[in-house]
Amino acid sequence: MRVRRVLSLLVVVALTGLLSGAAAGAGPTAQAAVAAAVGLLPSRVQEAVIAPAAPAPVAPAAAPEAAPEAAPVAPQQARQRVTSVRVAPVNVPGTPCTSNARACVDLSGDRAWLIEDGEIAYGPVPTTSGRPGFRTPPGTFPVTFHSRDHVSSIYDAPMPYSVFFNGGIAFHQGSLSQLSHGCIHLSRAAAREFFGSLERGDLVQVVP
């Protein structure tokens, strides 16, 4: 309340000084008039008026919010495992054998085929098989090895284009009018076809 009175007094004094100066022909500034008026005040009041006002406290700036961490991304599998599906072998139309066989022999029908992808690739071709006492055993056997100019060490007989699949039993070129000692006789052309088509590990199915 006291300060307001002082300030009002300063304004009155300043205006009075300005008016007086104007009447006398002088041009004092408002700042000079106020300074003159302040000089008339007691020293304690002068300090209160002259002292600069304390600056208003500035609120500290709020710290920037941290960006939310990205959710961890689950690692993806580089490769997907492919589960192999086993398909049961089926009968190959026109033969007594199944689709997992690469060569088929029908002992009772004296004929043979080559099979590929479940279908007949070659044949039927005529065959002869083992004589009594040397019957060709039925079953499924893998091809073990080839011998183009094979000669039997037991019977001292030539066995061209031999493809062995059950011990000493093989497809080979032989007589189609005489029974063998267990092997499957083929004509020369058929023996060459079997020799060139069958690979080691291929299955030979022999049906009674």
Rank of each mutant, 00 (worst) to 15 (best):
I120A: 02
G94R: 06
R81K: 04
T95E: 11
A112W: 09
R86I: 13
V82G: 10
R102I: 03
S99Q: 00
A101R: 03
S99C: 10
T83D: 02
R81Q: 10
P89L: 02
Q80I: 06
V92T: 05
A88Y: 08
S84V: 15
R81T: 11
C104D: 12
S99N: 00
A88L: 08
G118V: 03
G118N: 04
R79D: 08
C97T: 12
V82A: 09
L114C: 02
G94W: 04
R102P: 01
I120G: 10
N100M: 02
V90R: 15
G109P: 03
I115M: 00
R111L: 05
T98N: 15
P93Q: 14
E119I: 06
P96G: 03
S108V: 02
V105F: 04
V87N: 09
W113K: 01
A101Q: 02
D106V: 15
R111H: 04
W113T: 02
G109V: 09
R111C: 01
V90K: 14
D110Y: 12
N100K: 12
N100P: 09
G118M: 01
V85P: 07
C104L: 13
A103T: 02
E119F: 11
G118D: 03
L114H: 05
A101F: 01
N100H: 13
A112M: 11
